[in-house]
Amino acid sequence: MLTKRIIPCLDVKDGRVVKGVQFVELRDAGDPVELAAFYDLEGADELVFLDISASHEGRETMVDVVEQVAATLAIPFTVGGGINKIDDMKRMLRAGADKVSLNTAALLNPTLIKVGADFFGSQCIVVAIDAKYDESINSWKVYTHGGRRETDWEVVAWAQEAARLGAGEILLTSMDSDGEKKGYNIALTKAVSEAIRIPVIASGGAGNAAHFLEIFDHGVADAALAASIFHYKETSVKEVKNYLREKGVPVR
């Protein structure tokens, strides 16, 4: 039986992991390679590296980071952030990333999904969606530019379109839940996951192990992503998995 995946997410800026990662036992908590190895040992099923560099130099550095991570890590990893064209995808995948994640670029130019999927295979193409509840449509609207710009897309419609164009997976972030640590957005995740036939990674809102159980049991998520609760050691991948296993959720 396929297991539910637990995916730590690391923000990388100019080649270093940022966002106040706290790892006492690591010599250098900002080193992406060391952190990747740590999470691998902890039992993470995959990793996501989000490049938040603003400068061209920072973006260049990301390619080196990907190469180094790929050289040491024996689990799959996705690279997102700043991937705007087919060349960006090519560079990241050639450097050893298993998947690339498209967000704003896919909304600005949806054929990018198709071109990428045709060229590299659907399994390489993750479409990341930032969604926020909109009362007027009683559903969620899709946002771009790191959640700063609203689009005309309703989330289920966009997820279906992305899947139709060849996306292999959807990374779905609830802007309403993100950072609140009150649990994933179950209604949003369920609505998207049941409407498409590709895996959905839930993101935004993880605060404890029970939240993971909720999103798998009720949100129909295939995987769950979290950042700060793992980085700040509020819980660990191992703890979450032990809890899920006790509750009968298939985990590795």
Partner: peptide, 20 residues
């Protein structure tokens, strides 16, 4: 097939992730 032979329900393809 993408449709379960037992339940008749759809399941996701690709088979993506960790399996025993």
């Amino acid at each position: 097939p993408g449709v379960s032979k037992g339940s008749g329900l759809n399941y996701k393809v690709p088979h993506m992730g960790w399996n025993k």
